[in-house]
Write a protein that binds this DNA or RNA. Structure first.
Lengths: 326, 326
DNA sequence: GTGAAAGCGCTAACAA
DNA sequence: TTGTTAGCGCTTTCAC
């Protein structure tokens, strides 16, 4: 008898429960008053009818937005094709699901932080997660999104941040290298505009200077390809190098590969370390520092969803993961 | 003089352009008629006011939905923590961005495909991308979403699919092994409920039978950890094995690692191959077959977004990537 | 505690 | 070609 069952609306639920739409709304949105009896009848009817609130209608009336924007600063759109970012986006999507919110990603050119304003100036954007955050990017977060923005990386008074203790992780690595007798320790760095990279580099420098050892830096970009060429560069410039600190696991893996291809033994001749502890680090026995990307991303997403004032900065520790490469 | 600039609405644009809301709507939504003059004035006004259409309102009136759902079948929610899926979600989010659509991910228990109905029975869901698709899952796709659903894996008459030619890729691998003189070729398989895994296994079996060689299968699960234990199992059951075909790169890497740890030379004693060609496969010199996950995911997402009738099946080729492990 | 009524911003008949 | 008029489904004052 029932024709193609139309999707149940709040009106349907209200009618079935014998109350007004407003009452039904109050019960279902858990706001405002409603008698226990009304409550029960509405809940019942909703269940029976398989009622699912219409997110668009709700967002419209609340002016709330329907998706989170993950904005990623970088020199080119290729920053979006990166496994680190994949994890951030995917985790964010998982965290958002129960809230009925979707996720979008967008690249913000490093030299045009203003682009963020355009992207975020869309009422559909319910919140913002900043990745590879720079000062300039923080300055451009729209007022409307204050309290609904979190940064993975540096933050500001208006934008709470979640980050990892790169400095601590790198220090632990360098100390381990030193304790193992290495004295000619080089580093393949990351882009200087990234605070997380800078922190690692500074930790490396600080410790080496303190120990009276020479600083040997080669600029990198997190990639394995650059790790390869950087390995050659290091040994060319400083042939007596006995350890190479990679800014990331990918870099370190590239370094190791090139080294071995060139007949250099790892770790016998040169110890190599990474950073991140990606799944394959364990397979390849890479000594590294942990980097709980999923937990970090989940924390950032949760911050913008919960909206309760978050601590200005949440730092996840990074710990040494000892394996065979160093 | 101007107070806190309220977000410009269609009404504002219309007023500024001196036309009615409907005309403005027609111009901006690119539907229906409008004189060139009207067009220009509306566009102008919209630009000037920095007008951004309200996605929620639009979705509400069109009954269109505001996000894509990526539904992943699997035995446990841990399927969501997987780099393959990360790529799918992230790519989908990138493809959706220009359409103003967000993305959500959800796990559908393998034994309760009906859960999909509950998830998709939300008007906010504009489209569906199925991952690890099974027959049961296809049966449960709501009618409303026909034409707005795509599957990565198997499809049906109602649901177009995008997939990779696992059979072809695996065949190329096995042929290569054979050509290299290997005659005792074992395989570490994937879960049998996954069509893509079955296709690989069948290709392997078919070729071996054809060549009169013994089939040696050990059940795996795509993971490196299982690759490790499987390597031992293989050599324990069939000590003369001279090649191991992994269902995935992760599996193969696990196999290699265990083999080497046990003093078995790769590829001298045992050749090992993977499947996927993940970034680290090149670093570790793994012989494998290509698997353009991003392109596959982008194709699937585009299918649901464009809505024009897609071909029932799009098969991406997989080609042999020769490196040192086999 | 509850319901009537007024929109949120937009699109889509329908008239003009 | 354009404007008028209804809503889309929901939340939220504001009387009762």
């Amino acid at each position: 008898m029932t024709t193609v069952r139309r999707h149940a609306t709040l009106e349907d639920v209200a009618r079935a429960a014998g109350v007004s739409r407003s009452t039904a709304s109050r019960v279902l949105a858990e706001s405002g008053f409603a008698s226990p009896i009304a409550r029960e009848r509405v809940r019942d009817a909703a269940d029976r009818l398989g009622y699912v609130p219409n997110a668009a209608a709700r967002a419209l009336v609340r002016g709330a937005g329907v998706r989170l924007l993950v904005a990623v600063a970088g020199t080119s759109p290729t920053v979006l094709d990166d496994s680190y970012l994949d994890q951030v986006v995917s985790t964010t999507a998982q965290v958002c699901a129960p809230y009925g919110l979707g996720v979008t990603v967008a690249w913000v050119p490093l030299d045009q932080p203003g682009q963020l304003a355009r992207l975020a100036d869309d009422r559909a954007v319910a919140g913002l997660v900043l990745v590879n955050t720079t000062e300039a990017l923080l300055d451009v977060v729209p007022r409307r999104l204050y309290g609904r923005t979190a940064s993975i990386g540096i933050g500001s008074t208006a934008v709470p941040s979640v980050d990892i203790d790169n400095g601590g992780g790198t220090s632990a690595i360098v100390r381990h290298l030193y304790a193992a007798g290495r004295r000619r320790i080089a580093m393949v760095t990351g882009p200087a505009w990234l605070a997380c990279s800078r922190r690692s580099v500074e930790a490396y420098r600080g410790l080496l200077r303190e120990a009276g050892l020479p600083v040997r830096e080669v600029a990198g970009d997190f990639s394995a390809a650059r790790g390869r060429s950087a390995a050659r560069e290091v040994l060319h410039r400083w042939p007596d190098t006995d350890a190479i600190v990679g800014i990331s696991d990918a870099t370190a893996l590239g370094v190791i590969d090139q080294l071995r291809a060139d007949g250099v033994r790892v770790p016998a001749d040169v110890a190599v370390t990474g950073f991140d502890d990606i799944p394959l680090a364990s397979v390849t026995a890479l000594t590294t520092a942990s980097h709980p990307v999923r937990r970090i991303a989940a924390a950032a997403a949760t911050m913008v969803l919960e909206e309760r004032t978050a601590p200005p900065m949440t730092m996840f520790p990074s710990s040494l993961v000892l394996r065979e490469s160093a």
